[in-house]
Design a protein around this nucleic acid. Structure first.
Lengths: 143, 143
DNA sequence: CCGCGATATTTCATGTTGTCAAATACTTGG
DNA sequence: CCAAGTATTTGACAACATGAAATATCGCGG
């Protein structure tokens, strides 16, 4: 190990990551609230706007119980943003898919988020590249 | 603004930050669960281990309603990790303070977190310094 | 000094998210 | 075909979050 857990520099970086995490959530929830969505609903809608997914896969991606996903999809479906489809190859599974309205909402959400997180604009292109590489190695190593 | 919201490099960094956020939560909740604490409880306990705070200040730091803090402190107090003290200068306010046990728990929590987040060790000292500076500018600009 | 508006905390009602256990429906391999 | 396994839902419950209303206290203007 390159440094002890209590190494001051490491602790400082860990704290900074904590700040970034807090900030990220704040903005994510605010953007979601602008569409009367909760953070969890927005996350699932964003997922489904990429591709339809069976309930189980959503749960695995979110690292939560499938029974939890039922409720979230229920609420999204009640608002017409998502629909449940049968899986032709396995009648047990239900595939959740974003509706046209849902896809549109997801795109607006993503745009407003990308825009809100633009403090990255304070960094130069070269700096953003460096940041990308460092973060990539971090998440790469821990995955 | 230095780049459009849909700039590919910016979007990639934003996605990476999303990964870091997810990973951070996962580890934070796991470390908290090791002490039978929820994420919110662990966060408040960590706060109070630095210095005692009035309920209102806790709410402001957590960006939530004061009525929410009441419940979290209730649960921490029931387990002897925190205590409510009167404020000598204003009898309306109650100051929440970590007990000796609470302080010890908070320290263990912090150590295990620092250790768990040691994928930072994959980065050299110079790289961690660069990362610190970049993150610092990010959160500095947006604060 | 008195009273009135502001502030700190709590309580209550309600909604969302999360867990776990059990029920139901379906698939698959022996 | 049947038993074991899988996908989803349901129900009970806890934590977290908000907002409105109640209570206690503060501080200031008159």
């Amino acid at each position: 190990m390159a440094s002890s857990p209590t190494d001051p520099l490491t602790l400082e970086v860990v704290d900074l990551i904590g700040s970034v995490v807090a900030r990220y959530h704040e903005e994510y929830d605010r953007a979601a609230a602008a569409h009367s969505l909760t953070g969890a609903q927005a996350r699932v809608l964003a997922l489904l706007s990429l591709e339809p997914l069976p309930m189980r896969r959503i749960a695995r991606t979110l690292k939560c119980e499938p029974s939890n996903v039922t409720g979230i999809i229920d609420r999204l479906e009640a608002r017409g943003l998502v629909e449940r489809r049968p899986d032709p190859t396995d009648r047990r599974v239900k595939v959740a898919a974003a509706t046209a309205t849902g896809t549109r909402t997801a795109r607006q959400l993503r745009d407003s988020l990308g825009f809100a997180r633009e403090p990255l604009a304070e960094l130069s292109r070269a700096e953003r590249t460096t940041l990308r590489d460092l973060l990539h190695r971090m998440v790469g190593e821990q995955a």
